[in-house]
Design a protein around this nucleic acid. Structure first.
Lengths: 212, 212
DNA sequence: GTCTATAACGAGATAGAC
DNA sequence: GTCTATCTCGTTATAGAC
């Protein structure tokens, strides 16, 4: 980073500093739509909902995302990217696989506490009604999660800090499905504990020393 | 029950034998709608879809189920009733709690193999967009499942055939969420094994003698 | 109990002005 | 980039004939 001198206007760039308004609007749209999908599902909201919240017209929305399918693709891309960053941060913050797993589970817990579902969990339920590019991106999300979990689990097995009572891949699949499903049920029942109980069994059953 | 004599026509009843056609149509509507919810979700189909499949008009649908919300309520009632019967049959068919659990998991597996999701699992995802009576009925479904599982798990613990590494209620919650979520992910990934792997870890981890 | 016809509305999307 | 205006279509629902 440059030093603490006052910002000096740089020479005109090929791509001028992106018109703050435009790029900002696209991001605001994404944020609003993300919330809507995470709470109501992709089939549970319309451009009008976003427009109302952002105080713009639906025509403006179509300027940024020509079709709802395009918006959907952008949403998954954004969400997946953020999730990847989160996984990387978990790797950086924790050395113990058991801690990584708890951190992973806590990510879901925080989403639930924010009264949201996992974006891709919602889309998985609506899978058959989604345009093909969105379907594909949803599967990629789950694959990435499975791969990450598998590596964490195998690390714990190698180091003897996790007791895997089956193949790492199977347990990874159990954890993903378990957290996704428990979130859905917990929200419906209006009871966050329902998620926490399931999650602690899912993860705690793997730790060597304690019962979770 | 009366003995094996040929049925004798009883005196005219207040409610005459329900007009076969009518009742038959209502049932066909329920069956068609059930499939649609289990594959596309409650927000993923319209009366026109059912009408086309049953070769009747949407007006006829409204005769049997005045509003879509009414249809939705009837769907959950029907589904929950069938599920209860299934649980009762599992109790009747198996004495070993471990076998009941495998049977329970197999129910979900068969639904998935039929290329469907759990009706209430789908509705849980769409929860926030559902009319209140449907929301209430969905929660009841999960409560009933949790109660049944809890009893099975406690039975196994008493008899020493199941090893519960935590409170029965927590494990029941893990199993329900786990099966529901794994189903969703497995369908999206087009890979039934994904469900089977998760389910076998979910259930197999509890059996005392074998690893599942 | 099912039909035709239609009301009433909301959805996604586009054209063209500013 | 955002607007107004508009189009087209799908959706739930009703009225009234048969």
């Amino acid at each position: 980073m440059s030093r603490g001198v006052a910002k000096i206007p740089v020479a005109p760039r090929p791509r001028p500093a992106e018109p703050a308004k435009s790029r900002g609007t696209a991001m605001r749209i994404l944020a609003a739509a993300e919330l809507l999908v995470q709470t109501r599902g992709f089939n549970g909201f319309s451009y009008a909902d976003i427009a109302a919240q952002l105080q713009i017209t639906t025509a403006a929305l179509h300027y940024h995302f020509a079709t709802k399918a395009d918006l959907g693709e952008a949403l998954i891309a954004d969400y997946s990217q953020n999730f990847s960053k989160t996984l990387a941060r978990l790797d950086a913050d924790h050395t113990q696989p058991a801690d990584k797993l708890v951190g992973y589970s806590d990510v879901y817990l925080e989403v639930l506490r924010a009264e949201r579902m996992c974006l891709c969990g919602m889309l998985a339920a609506e899978y058959q009604t989604l345009p093909e590019p969105m379907q594909h991106a949803v599967v990629q999300f789950f694959d990435a999660n499975e791969t990450w979990l598998e590596q964490v689990l195998e690390q714990g097995q190698r180091e003897g800090t996790l007791h895997l009572y089956g193949p790492a891949r199977d347990i990874a699949r159990m954890i993903i499905g378990g957290l996704e499903g428990a979130m859905m049920v917990a929200r419906a029942c209006g009871d966050v504990r329902r998620f926490q109980d399931a999650a602690s069994r899912l993860i705690g059953g793997l730790t060597v020393a304690r019962g979770g």
